[in-house]
Design a protein around this nucleic acid. Structure first.
Lengths: 189, 189
DNA sequence: ATTTCAAACTAACAATTGTTAGTTTAACAT
DNA sequence: ATGTTAAACTAACAATTGTTAGTTTGAAAT
Protein backbone atom coordinates (compact mmCIF):
# COMPACT_ATOMS: atom_id res chain seq x y z
CA UNK A 1 0.00 0.00 0.00
CA UNK A 2 1.30 3.46 -0.86
CA UNK A 3 -0.30 5.24 2.10
CA UNK A 4 -0.72 4.27 5.73
CA UNK A 5 -4.14 5.85 6.07
CA UNK A 6 -6.55 7.93 4.04
CA UNK A 7 -5.59 10.92 6.15
CA UNK A 8 -1.98 10.32 5.24
CA UNK A 9 -2.94 10.25 1.59
CA UNK A 10 -4.70 13.59 1.95
CA UNK A 11 -1.64 15.11 3.59
CA UNK A 12 0.77 13.88 0.98
CA UNK A 13 -1.51 14.87 -1.88
CA UNK A 14 -1.92 18.31 -0.36
CA UNK A 15 1.83 18.71 -0.01
CA UNK A 16 2.23 18.16 -3.75
CA UNK A 17 -0.32 20.86 -4.50
CA UNK A 18 1.08 23.21 -1.85
CA UNK A 19 4.50 23.02 -3.46
CA UNK A 20 3.13 24.07 -6.84
CA UNK A 21 1.03 27.05 -5.77
CA UNK A 22 1.51 27.61 -2.09
CA UNK A 23 -0.91 26.85 0.75
CA UNK A 24 -3.16 29.87 0.26
CA UNK A 25 -3.73 29.30 -3.43
CA UNK A 26 -4.76 25.66 -3.01
CA UNK A 27 -8.44 25.08 -2.21
CA UNK A 28 -10.06 22.15 -0.49
CA UNK A 29 -11.75 21.46 -3.82
CA UNK A 30 -8.33 21.27 -5.49
CA UNK A 31 -7.19 18.71 -2.95
CA UNK A 32 -10.38 16.71 -3.28
CA UNK A 33 -10.21 16.71 -7.07
CA UNK A 34 -6.64 15.43 -6.96
CA UNK A 35 -7.93 12.49 -4.91
CA UNK A 36 -11.00 11.91 -7.03
CA UNK A 37 -13.51 12.79 -4.31
CA UNK A 38 -15.58 15.79 -3.23
CA UNK A 39 -14.30 18.49 -0.91
CA UNK A 40 -16.77 17.68 1.85
CA UNK A 41 -15.51 14.09 1.96
CA UNK A 42 -12.10 15.27 3.11
CA UNK A 43 -13.67 16.19 6.43
CA UNK A 44 -14.29 12.55 7.25
CA UNK A 45 -10.52 12.33 7.72
CA UNK A 46 -9.22 15.75 8.68
CA UNK A 47 -10.59 18.57 10.80
CA UNK A 48 -9.50 21.57 8.78
CA UNK A 49 -7.24 22.83 6.03
CA UNK A 50 -5.03 24.22 8.76
CA UNK A 51 -4.54 20.78 10.21
CA UNK A 52 -3.16 19.49 6.92
CA UNK A 53 -0.53 22.21 6.89
CA UNK A 54 0.38 21.65 10.53
CA UNK A 55 0.84 17.92 10.05
CA UNK A 56 3.15 18.52 7.10
CA UNK A 57 5.31 21.13 8.73
CA UNK A 58 5.47 20.10 12.38
CA UNK A 59 6.41 16.50 11.72
CA UNK A 60 9.32 17.65 9.55
CA UNK A 61 10.45 20.29 12.01
CA UNK A 62 10.46 17.68 14.75
CA UNK A 63 12.56 15.34 12.64
CA UNK A 64 15.20 18.03 12.27
CA UNK A 65 15.08 18.82 15.99
CA UNK A 66 15.44 15.18 16.93
CA UNK A 67 18.43 14.56 14.69
CA UNK A 68 20.13 17.79 15.66
CA UNK A 69 20.00 16.69 19.27
CA UNK A 70 21.98 13.55 18.39
CA UNK A 71 24.52 15.48 16.37
CA UNK A 72 25.18 18.23 18.86
CA UNK A 73 25.74 15.87 21.79
CA UNK A 74 28.13 13.65 19.84
CA UNK A 75 31.83 14.21 20.40
CA UNK A 76 32.75 14.45 16.75
CA UNK A 77 34.76 17.37 15.44
CA UNK A 78 32.90 20.47 14.32
CA UNK A 79 33.65 19.74 10.69
CA UNK A 80 32.22 16.26 11.11
CA UNK A 81 29.13 17.65 12.79
CA UNK A 82 28.62 20.03 9.90
CA UNK A 83 28.95 17.14 7.47
CA UNK A 84 26.31 15.27 9.41
CA UNK A 85 24.02 18.28 9.22
CA UNK A 86 24.43 18.40 5.46
CA UNK A 87 23.56 14.70 5.33
CA UNK A 88 20.56 15.33 7.57
CA UNK A 89 19.14 17.94 5.23
CA UNK A 90 19.81 15.95 2.10
CA UNK A 91 18.25 12.88 3.70
CA UNK A 92 15.04 14.47 4.95
CA UNK A 93 14.63 16.56 1.81
CA UNK A 94 15.08 13.68 -0.60
CA UNK A 95 12.36 11.78 1.26
CA UNK A 96 10.02 14.77 1.64
CA UNK A 97 10.51 17.00 -1.35
CA UNK A 98 6.97 18.39 -1.22
CA UNK A 99 6.64 18.79 2.51
CA UNK A 100 9.91 20.70 2.62
CA UNK A 101 8.39 23.29 0.31
CA UNK A 102 5.65 23.96 2.85
CA UNK A 103 8.14 24.02 5.69
CA UNK A 104 10.14 26.69 3.91
CA UNK A 105 7.42 28.75 2.26
CA UNK A 106 4.16 28.35 4.14
CA UNK A 107 5.12 28.21 7.81
CA UNK A 108 3.68 31.70 8.33
CA UNK A 109 0.21 30.29 7.68
CA UNK A 110 0.42 28.07 10.71
CA UNK A 111 -1.89 29.36 13.40
CA UNK A 112 -2.14 27.38 16.62
CA UNK A 113 1.30 25.86 16.12
CA UNK A 114 3.13 28.88 14.77
CA UNK A 115 4.87 29.68 18.05
CA UNK A 116 5.91 26.08 18.51
CA UNK A 117 7.35 25.97 15.00
CA UNK A 118 9.24 29.23 15.50
CA UNK A 119 10.73 27.90 18.71
CA UNK A 120 11.93 24.73 17.03
CA UNK A 121 13.45 26.74 14.20
CA UNK A 122 15.14 29.22 16.51
CA UNK A 123 16.63 26.39 18.58
CA UNK A 124 17.87 24.64 15.47
CA UNK A 125 19.58 27.80 14.25
CA UNK A 126 21.12 28.36 17.66
CA UNK A 127 22.48 24.82 17.74
CA UNK A 128 24.02 25.23 14.31
CA UNK A 129 25.45 28.61 15.28
CA UNK A 130 27.06 27.08 18.39
CA UNK A 131 28.76 24.41 16.32
CA UNK A 132 30.15 27.05 13.96
CA UNK A 133 31.34 29.33 16.75
CA UNK A 134 33.03 26.43 18.51
CA UNK A 135 34.67 25.44 15.23
CA UNK A 136 36.16 28.91 14.95
CA UNK A 137 37.34 28.95 18.56
CA UNK A 138 39.06 25.62 18.17
CA UNK A 139 40.72 26.66 14.91
CA UNK A 140 38.86 24.13 12.81
CA UNK A 141 37.10 26.85 10.84
CA UNK A 142 38.40 30.03 9.29
CA UNK A 143 37.99 33.09 11.51
CA UNK A 144 35.20 34.76 9.55
CA UNK A 145 31.84 36.15 10.60
CA UNK A 146 29.85 33.21 12.00
CA UNK A 147 26.54 34.84 11.09
CA UNK A 148 27.53 34.91 7.46
CA UNK A 149 28.61 31.29 7.58
CA UNK A 150 25.36 30.30 9.28
CA UNK A 151 23.32 32.21 6.74
CA UNK A 152 25.12 30.82 3.73
CA UNK A 153 25.02 27.23 4.88
CA UNK A 154 21.38 27.31 5.95
CA UNK A 155 20.32 29.03 2.74
CA UNK A 156 21.83 26.27 0.68
CA UNK A 157 20.43 23.48 2.83
CA UNK A 158 16.97 25.02 2.94
CA UNK A 159 16.85 25.35 -0.83
CA UNK A 160 17.56 21.68 -1.43
CA UNK A 161 13.87 20.96 -1.97
CA UNK A 162 13.97 23.08 -5.10
CA UNK A 163 16.99 21.39 -6.60
CA UNK A 164 17.01 17.77 -5.58
CA UNK A 165 13.88 16.94 -7.61
CA UNK A 166 15.47 18.39 -10.73
CA UNK A 167 18.36 15.96 -10.48
CA UNK A 168 16.35 12.76 -10.38
CA UNK A 169 19.17 10.46 -11.43
CA UNK A 170 21.32 11.61 -8.56
CA UNK A 171 23.33 9.44 -6.21
CA UNK A 172 22.32 10.86 -2.85
CA UNK A 173 25.42 9.71 -1.03
CA UNK A 174 27.73 11.19 -3.62
CA UNK A 175 25.78 14.42 -3.76
CA UNK A 176 26.01 14.76 0.00
CA UNK A 177 29.77 14.40 -0.16
CA UNK A 178 30.12 16.91 -3.01
CA UNK A 179 27.98 19.45 -1.22
CA UNK A 180 29.86 19.01 2.07
CA UNK A 181 33.18 19.50 0.34
CA UNK A 182 31.91 22.57 -1.45
CA UNK A 183 30.52 24.24 1.67
CA UNK A 184 33.68 23.46 3.60
CA UNK A 185 36.36 24.19 1.03
CA UNK A 186 34.65 26.63 -1.31
CA UNK A 187 35.11 26.79 -5.03
CA UNK A 188 38.59 28.21 -5.15
CA UNK A 189 41.40 26.14 -6.57
CA UNK B 1 8.65 62.65 -1.81
CA UNK B 2 8.85 58.99 -0.89
CA UNK B 3 7.05 57.69 -3.98
CA UNK B 4 7.18 58.69 -7.63
CA UNK B 5 3.50 58.09 -8.27
CA UNK B 6 0.47 56.76 -6.46
CA UNK B 7 0.79 53.58 -8.52
CA UNK B 8 4.33 53.20 -7.31
CA UNK B 9 3.12 53.58 -3.75
CA UNK B 10 0.57 50.82 -4.28
CA UNK B 11 3.24 48.53 -5.69
CA UNK B 12 5.67 49.11 -2.86
CA UNK B 13 2.98 48.80 -0.21
CA UNK B 14 1.80 45.56 -1.80
CA UNK B 15 5.33 44.19 -1.83
CA UNK B 16 5.54 44.66 1.93
CA UNK B 17 2.33 42.74 2.44
CA UNK B 18 3.27 40.07 -0.11
CA UNK B 19 6.47 39.37 1.77
CA UNK B 20 4.61 38.75 5.01
CA UNK B 21 1.88 36.43 3.75
CA UNK B 22 2.49 35.71 0.10
CA UNK B 23 0.61 37.05 -2.92
CA UNK B 24 -2.39 34.74 -2.65
CA UNK B 25 -3.10 35.50 0.98
CA UNK B 26 -3.10 39.27 0.49
CA UNK B 27 -6.39 40.80 -0.58
CA UNK B 28 -7.05 44.02 -2.39
CA UNK B 29 -8.76 45.18 0.80
CA UNK B 30 -5.56 44.47 2.74
CA UNK B 31 -3.59 46.61 0.33
CA UNK B 32 -6.16 49.38 0.41
CA UNK B 33 -6.31 49.38 4.20
CA UNK B 34 -2.52 49.67 4.40
CA UNK B 35 -2.80 52.81 2.28
CA UNK B 36 -5.77 54.23 4.16
CA UNK B 37 -8.18 54.01 1.23
CA UNK B 38 -10.88 51.65 -0.06
CA UNK B 39 -10.17 48.69 -2.30
CA UNK B 40 -12.10 50.10 -5.24
CA UNK B 41 -9.93 53.22 -5.20
CA UNK B 42 -6.87 51.15 -6.08
CA UNK B 43 -8.34 50.65 -9.53
CA UNK B 44 -7.89 54.30 -10.34
CA UNK B 45 -4.18 53.50 -10.53
CA UNK B 46 -3.78 49.84 -11.40
CA UNK B 47 -5.67 47.47 -13.65
CA UNK B 48 -5.59 44.30 -11.57
CA UNK B 49 -3.97 42.54 -8.65
CA UNK B 50 -1.99 40.56 -11.21
CA UNK B 51 -0.50 43.74 -12.57
CA UNK B 52 0.90 44.66 -9.18
CA UNK B 53 2.72 41.35 -8.95
CA UNK B 54 4.03 41.62 -12.49
CA UNK B 55 5.41 45.09 -11.93
CA UNK B 56 7.23 43.95 -8.80
CA UNK B 57 8.76 40.83 -10.28
CA UNK B 58 9.49 41.73 -13.88
CA UNK B 59 11.28 44.98 -13.11
CA UNK B 60 13.59 43.14 -10.72
CA UNK B 61 14.19 40.27 -13.11
CA UNK B 62 15.10 42.76 -15.80
CA UNK B 63 17.57 44.50 -13.51
CA UNK B 64 19.36 41.20 -12.96
CA UNK B 65 19.35 40.44 -16.66
CA UNK B 66 20.73 43.84 -17.54
CA UNK B 67 23.58 43.69 -15.05
CA UNK B 68 24.46 40.09 -15.90
CA UNK B 69 24.92 41.17 -19.50
CA UNK B 70 27.56 43.67 -18.43
CA UNK B 71 29.34 41.18 -16.22
CA UNK B 72 29.45 38.32 -18.68
CA UNK B 73 30.85 40.41 -21.52
CA UNK B 74 33.59 41.95 -19.38
CA UNK B 75 37.05 40.45 -19.63
CA UNK B 76 37.56 40.01 -15.91
CA UNK B 77 38.61 36.68 -14.45
CA UNK B 78 35.91 34.20 -13.53
CA UNK B 79 36.52 34.75 -9.85
CA UNK B 80 36.08 38.48 -10.35
CA UNK B 81 32.90 37.92 -12.30
CA UNK B 82 31.54 35.80 -9.48
CA UNK B 83 32.41 38.52 -6.99
CA UNK B 84 30.54 41.00 -9.15
CA UNK B 85 27.53 38.69 -9.18
CA UNK B 86 27.57 38.52 -5.39
CA UNK B 87 27.69 42.31 -5.30
CA UNK B 88 24.82 42.46 -7.79
CA UNK B 89 22.58 40.33 -5.61
CA UNK B 90 23.49 42.11 -2.41
CA UNK B 91 22.93 45.47 -4.09
CA UNK B 92 19.54 44.76 -5.63
CA UNK B 93 18.33 42.89 -2.56
CA UNK B 94 19.32 45.58 -0.09
CA UNK B 95 17.37 48.10 -2.15
CA UNK B 96 14.37 45.84 -2.74
CA UNK B 97 13.99 43.59 0.26
CA UNK B 98 10.25 43.18 -0.19
CA UNK B 99 10.14 42.83 -3.94
CA UNK B 100 12.79 40.12 -3.80
CA UNK B 101 10.45 38.05 -1.64
CA UNK B 102 7.85 38.10 -4.42
CA UNK B 103 10.47 37.33 -7.04
CA UNK B 104 11.54 34.25 -5.15
CA UNK B 105 8.25 33.01 -3.74
CA UNK B 106 5.39 34.23 -5.90
CA UNK B 107 6.64 34.07 -9.47
CA UNK B 108 4.37 31.08 -10.12
CA UNK B 109 1.36 33.37 -9.76
CA UNK B 110 2.41 35.42 -12.75
CA UNK B 111 0.05 34.74 -15.62
CA UNK B 112 0.60 36.69 -18.83
CA UNK B 113 4.29 37.24 -18.03
CA UNK B 114 5.13 33.86 -16.56
CA UNK B 115 6.86 32.60 -19.69
CA UNK B 116 8.84 35.79 -20.02
CA UNK B 117 9.96 35.55 -16.41
CA UNK B 118 10.97 31.91 -16.78
CA UNK B 119 13.01 32.77 -19.85
CA UNK B 120 14.86 35.54 -18.03
CA UNK B 121 15.57 33.24 -15.11
CA UNK B 122 16.73 30.38 -17.30
CA UNK B 123 19.06 32.68 -19.20
CA UNK B 124 20.46 34.08 -15.98
CA UNK B 125 21.18 30.62 -14.67
CA UNK B 126 22.79 29.63 -17.94
CA UNK B 127 25.05 32.68 -17.86
CA UNK B 128 26.13 31.93 -14.31
CA UNK B 129 26.70 28.28 -15.20
CA UNK B 130 28.89 29.29 -18.13
CA UNK B 131 31.06 31.45 -15.92
CA UNK B 132 31.51 28.57 -13.47
CA UNK B 133 32.30 26.03 -16.19
CA UNK B 134 34.83 28.36 -17.76
CA UNK B 135 36.38 28.92 -14.34
CA UNK B 136 36.88 25.19 -13.98
CA UNK B 137 38.31 24.81 -17.47
CA UNK B 138 40.80 27.58 -16.90
CA UNK B 139 41.85 26.16 -13.55
CA UNK B 140 40.57 29.12 -11.57
CA UNK B 141 38.00 26.99 -9.78
CA UNK B 142 38.29 23.59 -8.18
CA UNK B 143 37.27 20.71 -10.45
CA UNK B 144 33.97 19.87 -8.75
CA UNK B 145 30.45 19.39 -10.09
CA UNK B 146 29.45 22.75 -11.62
CA UNK B 147 25.77 22.03 -11.02
CA UNK B 148 26.39 21.75 -7.30
CA UNK B 149 28.39 24.97 -7.32
CA UNK B 150 25.66 26.75 -9.25
CA UNK B 151 22.98 25.47 -6.92
CA UNK B 152 24.84 26.36 -3.76
CA UNK B 153 25.77 29.84 -4.87
CA UNK B 154 22.34 30.71 -6.24
CA UNK B 155 20.61 29.38 -3.14
CA UNK B 156 22.63 31.65 -0.94
CA UNK B 157 22.17 34.68 -3.17
CA UNK B 158 18.45 34.11 -3.58
CA UNK B 159 17.94 33.87 0.17
CA UNK B 160 19.53 37.23 0.86
CA UNK B 161 16.14 38.89 1.09
CA UNK B 162 15.40 36.85 4.21
CA UNK B 163 18.64 37.69 5.98
CA UNK B 164 19.67 41.17 5.01
CA UNK B 165 16.71 42.83 6.76
CA UNK B 166 17.60 41.02 10.01
CA UNK B 167 21.04 42.62 10.01
CA UNK B 168 19.95 46.23 9.79
CA UNK B 169 23.18 47.71 11.10
CA UNK B 170 25.19 46.01 8.40
CA UNK B 171 27.89 47.57 6.26
CA UNK B 172 26.82 46.44 2.82
CA UNK B 173 30.25 46.73 1.26
CA UNK B 174 31.87 44.72 4.02
CA UNK B 175 29.16 42.08 3.96
CA UNK B 176 29.60 41.68 0.20
CA UNK B 177 33.29 41.03 0.71
CA UNK B 178 32.74 38.56 3.52
CA UNK B 179 30.17 36.64 1.54
CA UNK B 180 32.37 36.55 -1.57
CA UNK B 181 35.29 35.21 0.42
CA UNK B 182 33.12 32.60 2.07
CA UNK B 183 31.60 31.33 -1.17
CA UNK B 184 34.99 31.25 -2.83
CA UNK B 185 37.19 29.86 -0.05
CA UNK B 186 34.70 27.98 2.11
CA UNK B 187 34.79 27.74 5.85
CA UNK B 188 37.75 25.45 6.26
CA UNK B 189 40.87 26.73 7.93
C1' DA C 1 -16.83 81.80 -10.58
C1' DT C 2 -16.42 77.83 -13.49
C1' DT C 3 -14.33 73.99 -15.39
C1' DT C 4 -11.39 70.16 -15.13
C1' DC C 5 -9.54 66.12 -13.36
C1' DA C 6 -7.17 63.01 -10.37
C1' DA C 7 -8.48 60.30 -6.80
C1' DA C 8 -11.31 59.18 -3.51
C1' DC C 9 -16.00 57.22 -2.36
C1' DT C 10 -20.52 53.87 -1.94
C1' DA C 11 -22.79 49.97 -3.44
C1' DA C 12 -23.02 46.04 -5.52
C1' DC C 13 -21.87 41.81 -8.55
C1' DA C 14 -20.79 36.95 -9.44
C1' DA C 15 -17.60 33.61 -8.13
C1' DT C 16 -15.17 31.18 -4.85
C1' DT C 17 -13.88 30.05 -0.13
C1' DG C 18 -13.78 26.61 4.07
C1' DT C 19 -16.97 24.18 6.33
C1' DT C 20 -21.37 21.82 8.15
C1' DA C 21 -25.53 18.87 8.14
C1' DG C 22 -27.70 15.17 6.79
C1' DT C 23 -27.84 11.16 3.63
C1' DT C 24 -26.32 7.21 0.84
C1' DT C 25 -23.28 3.47 -0.33
C1' DA C 26 -21.05 -0.80 0.17
C1' DA C 27 -18.13 -3.96 2.48
C1' DC C 28 -17.83 -6.64 6.59
C1' DA C 29 -19.19 -9.01 11.10
C1' DT C 30 -22.81 -10.92 13.61
C1' DA D 1 -30.86 -11.23 7.14
C1' DT D 2 -29.27 -7.50 10.20
C1' DG D 3 -26.44 -4.14 12.13
C1' DT D 4 -22.20 -1.56 11.98
C1' DT D 5 -19.01 1.41 10.12
C1' DA D 6 -15.82 3.93 7.12
C1' DA D 7 -16.13 6.87 3.58
C1' DA D 8 -18.30 8.68 0.10
C1' DC D 9 -22.19 11.80 -1.41
C1' DT D 10 -25.61 16.25 -2.16
C1' DA D 11 -26.88 20.62 -0.81
C1' DA D 12 -26.22 24.47 1.31
C1' DC D 13 -24.24 28.27 4.47
C1' DA D 14 -21.97 32.73 5.49
C1' DA D 15 -17.96 35.04 4.48
C1' DT D 16 -14.70 36.69 1.43
C1' DT D 17 -12.77 37.38 -3.14
C1' DG D 18 -11.41 40.62 -7.29
C1' DT D 19 -13.66 43.78 -9.77
C1' DT D 20 -17.12 47.22 -11.91
C1' DA D 21 -20.31 51.19 -12.21
C1' DG D 22 -21.53 55.35 -11.01
C1' DT D 23 -20.86 59.28 -7.81
C1' DT D 24 -18.56 62.72 -4.85
C1' DT D 25 -14.67 65.49 -3.37
C1' DG D 26 -11.45 69.08 -3.53
C1' DA D 27 -7.61 71.39 -5.36
C1' DA D 28 -5.59 73.62 -9.45
C1' DA D 29 -6.32 76.07 -13.89
C1' DT D 30 -8.96 79.03 -16.56
Amino acid sequence: MKYETRKDEIIQTSAILFKKKGYSAVTMRDIAKAMGIKAASLYNHINSKQEILSEIIISLAEQFTEQMKIIKYSDDSCIDKLKQIVALHVGITSNNQFGMASLNSDWMHLEAELDYYLTLRKNYENDLRSIIVKGIQEDELVDANPEVMLFSMLSTLRSLYIWLPKKEDLDIQQFTNELSLLLINGINK
